[in-house]
């Protein structure tokens, strides 16, 4: 039985990786852009993708929701971002932070980096608790308040988060465009190098602290975490079956205790806790019924081989 569980755990990891790669390809499928060093200009760019995926990536097929939110808030006239916020609310309530755990290309990159066999750093609990608030601060200040109220341009405001922080933009947009487009390369100045240094710092941190950016800095994760309590995709733990072995918290890339915080604001629903649970106490569930009756595990979850 134990061997079966290890086998199921291995296959679920593979399925999870396949979903992450497929999602990255789906959101970045414009390969011609990578050849020519130009970005996609088709109609799908009107739609926000659910993940942090720079629209200036030469391969991007959709719009980054965080960039779009800043663009609408900072546009001349300063309109309320109904479309972008509504899209984010729908993604949040339908998928919650499963977007972070299963769909985000920048999350995939961090997962790959965390596989580098070096000793991982355990962030002291007090510092960890405080640092987790930084992403909410970034969301409030750099994504909402500064673009909405700090008018520094006759046409509106620039996207503060994209300009000064976003490492995904540097990795997916900045570096490829600089490599492919000599005209842009000549324009690279101190701001570009600041962003490269920040990207290098975030990626290095992700080697030692799994999902470093998701844990502490990502404003999109901060937004989705507001919907964790209501999202349709949820994981639950059967506390009667749980043997409190601690294996789940050891496997969690977000360094939370799944027994206490499963499907909470910091849980990215990646399912690693379920993979290692020796008694199959953790399951991916359908939403609760309106009368609050017990969740129904999805076929293939809980006991037996898992879906991912």
């Amino acid at each position: 039985m134990h061997r079966d569980r290890i086998k199921a755990s291995g296959s679920s990891q593979k399925v999870r990786s396949v979903i992450q790669v497929c999602s990255a390809v789906l959101f970045n499928g414009y390969l011609t852009g990578l050849k020519r060093g130009k970005i996609f200009t088709g109609k799908t760019k009107s739609f926000c993708v659910p993940v942090l995926n720079c629209y200036s990536c030469p391969a991007a097929l959709g719009a980054c929701p965080i960039g779009s939110l800043q663009a609408v808030l900072g546009s001349s006239g300063g309109r309320f971002p109904f479309y972008v916020l509504g899209s984010l609310m729908l993604f949040g309530v339908l998928l919650g932070r499963a977007v972070c755990g299963l769909l985000c290309p920048f999350g995939l990159i961090q997962d790959l980096l965390s596989k580098i066999p070096v000793k991982k750093i355990s962030v002291p609990k007090k510092a960890d608790r405080l640092l987790r608030y930084v992403k909410y601060l970034i969301l409030a200040v750099f994504v909402i308040l500064l673009p909405a109220f700090f008018r520094n341009d006759p046409g509106g405001s620039f996207p503060w988060f994209c300009k000064y922080i976003c490492p995904a933009g540097t990795l997916e947009g900045g570096i490829p465009l600089m490599l492919l487009n000599p005209g842009l390369r000549d324009l690279a100045g101190p701001l570009f190098w600041w962003k490269v240094i920040l990207l290098a710092a975030v990626l290095t941190a992700a080697v030692f602290i799994p999902r470093f950016f998701c844990r502490y800095l990502c404003p999109l994760g901060a937004f989705y975490s507001l919907f964790s309590g209501f999202s349709l995709v949820r994981m639950t733990v059967d506390k009667e079956s749980c043997v409190v072995c601690g294996k789940c918290s050891g496997a969690c890339p977000m360094s939370i205790d799944p027994v206490k915080q499963l499907s909470g604001a910091e849980c990215i629903l990646c399912g690693r806790c379920r993979d290692v649970c020796p008694v199959s106490a953790i399951s991916l569930n359908l939403p609760q019924h309106s009368d609050g009756s017990k969740d129904r595990p999805l076929p293939g979850t809980g006991s037996g081989p898992s879906a991912f």
């Binding site: 009107s46 739609f47 479309y83 100045g189 570009f192 190098w193």
Partner: peptide
């Protein structure tokens, strides 16, 4: 309200801020 045009217009031009220039 036509908000998608703001998103589209931003997304089809290289965002100089996003790439750091």
């Amino acid at each position: 309200g036509g908000e998608y045009t703001v998103v589209f217009n931003k997304a089809v031009r290289i965002c100089l801020e996003c790439i750091g220039i």
